[in-house]
Simulated assay, not measured.
Amino acid sequence: MRTRTHVRVLAGTALAAGILASAAPAYAALPSPEADAYVVSSDALSGLVAVSPTPHSTYPSGGTQTLVGLNLGPFSTTSVLTATTAGNPADGTSTASATVDRIGLDLGLAQASLTGINTTCNATPAGATGSGTIAGGTVTIAGIPTTLQANAPANTKVSIPAIGTIILNEQTTDANGVLTVNAARFALLPVLNGANLTIGHSQCGGAQPAESVPMINPAVAGATGGVALAGVLGAVHLRRRNAQGTAPTA
């Protein structure tokens, strides 16, 4: 049978356990930081070959990959394409970026030109941030141009008749906190094979620092540790007093 003192002891212990548990910091779900970057990729389109991620950098091992000029699939450019990734397991961070000054696309029914493409992604154990921008761009159908917004807000959608949808500064985050940023993604209509064309791709995710062990957050412990300790000591004191009060007499 539980006495009132037993209940107080259990309550004090539960209070302390709850406070100490809530003080542990939350870390990203990935076991180690990761990053991925490339400048262009596309599915096969109207007889044009698919383009695998080009140039492509992945962390680990990371580093910078460059390509001078490209004429493949729907893409053409004389500019330098650059993709870079890096990471640091010690503090759980990673970065990714992709850039190219100018690139043209031939979509058959339409032509497109984009300038100043740049994406970045920066991740820590607490989360990731990034951006995907173009300095300017147009899509031309039958000689009629549609201007694309420069430095568009995240996930800006532009509908292009007979072509499909262009998503500017596309940003998505998965269940592990990995952020994916595309400066521009063309999602074409089924008549165009429903192809996806991506320009300027950066992806990154943080992780728990390799050298850290989850402990009590000092800021939380400073505010609540005294309360938890007082609860435990108070419960112990009540238990001892109860034991002394019920001890048999000689």
Rank of each mutant, 00 (worst) to 15 (best):
G12H: 12
G18S: 12
L20S: 14
L20K: 02
P25R: 05
A26D: 05
A28R: 09
L30M: 11
S32N: 12
E34V: 10
D36H: 11
D36C: 02
A37W: 02
V39T: 08
V39Y: 07
S46I: 08
G47S: 12
G47I: 14
T54D: 09
P60R: 02
P60H: 03
L72W: 00
T77S: 08
T78D: 03
L81N: 01
A83M: 01
A86H: 10
P89A: 11
D91H: 02
G92T: 01
G92R: 01
T99A: 05
R102S: 08
L107V: 11
G108Q: 10
G116P: 00
I117D: 01
T119V: 10
T120I: 15
T120W: 11
A126T: 14
A126R: 15
G127Q: 05
T129Y: 05
I134E: 03
I134Y: 06
A135W: 00
G136S: 06
T140A: 00
I141T: 13
G143K: 01
P145M: 01
T147P: 02
Q149I: 11
K157Y: 13
K157E: 15
V158M: 12
P161W: 07
I166Q: 07
I167G: 08
L168F: 09
L168S: 06
E170K: 15
E170Q: 15
Q171M: 09
Q171I: 05
T173I: 14
V178I: 10
T180C: 08
F186S: 13
V191N: 15
L192K: 09
G194E: 13
A195F: 10
N196K: 13
N196G: 12
L197E: 05
H201L: 07
G205L: 03
G206L: 07
Q208L: 13
A210C: 01
S212K: 04
P214Y: 04
I216R: 00
N217R: 00
G222L: 10
G222K: 07
A223S: 06
A223G: 00
G226N: 02
L229N: 04
V232R: 13
L233T: 15
R239S: 12
A247T: 04
P248H: 13
P248S: 12
A250E: 06
A250W: 11
